[in-house]
Amino acid sequence: MATILNIQNLSKTYQSAGRTLTVLENINFSVEAGSTMAIVGPSGSGKTTLLGLAAGLDRSTTGSVELNNIKLDQLNEDQRASIRNQHVGFIFQSFQLLPTLTALENIMVPLELRGEKNIKPRAVDLLRKVGLGDRGHHYPAQLSGGEQQRVSMARAFINKPQILFTDEPTGNLDAETSRGIVELIFNLNKEAGTTLIMVTHDLELANQTGRIIKLKGGRIVSDETTANSN
């Protein structure tokens, strides 16, 4: 199977109060297309920073990130934005919906950014798939947390991404809602054949993916496949 994400010698440092703070150090791994993977670790271990770098939201200090055979470090921010729009989907812990857009409008934005036409039927279809067929005209503030996360999922899948990054997708939800959301993520992912990279604290959730990378102090301390690995 082809490699969709290849990370080599990746490190990230910040300057803080005149001191250099190393958040990630010498990270190396690659991800095969269509696979699922979780990044776990304690708070401050660098999980979210790694997700940001892998998704092209930020630039590494050293090393390289290759997404779908495109070297992200050689691109400027606008070029990386274009790559995200074409190949990447996101689901965030705090949903990150645009508060002034309705649920349907939120879902359509990635395709509108591509300049595509006649996208409304696709957005309505996805909204129905996530169980919110009748809530398309509602604003995020009028939806519950679980409903907002469903809209976020529909938005993540509308551009048929090759890779989906999720950051603690159930972190803000109760247990029952979380179960429904997780089930939906995996179902949609399977249906679309998307690569899934999930950052989470929840080991039970991580175990539902095929591989778990454990971070500690900015380094990979373990990289194991799970029972769900194909």
Partner: peptide, 16 residues
């Protein structure tokens, strides 16, 4: 900032 960051995340260019 948050709304702009979301748009940027979804692929909007800084100019847009």
């Amino acid at each position: 900032i948050k709304s702009v960051a979301i748009l940027r995340c979804l692929g909007a260019k800084g100019r847009q």
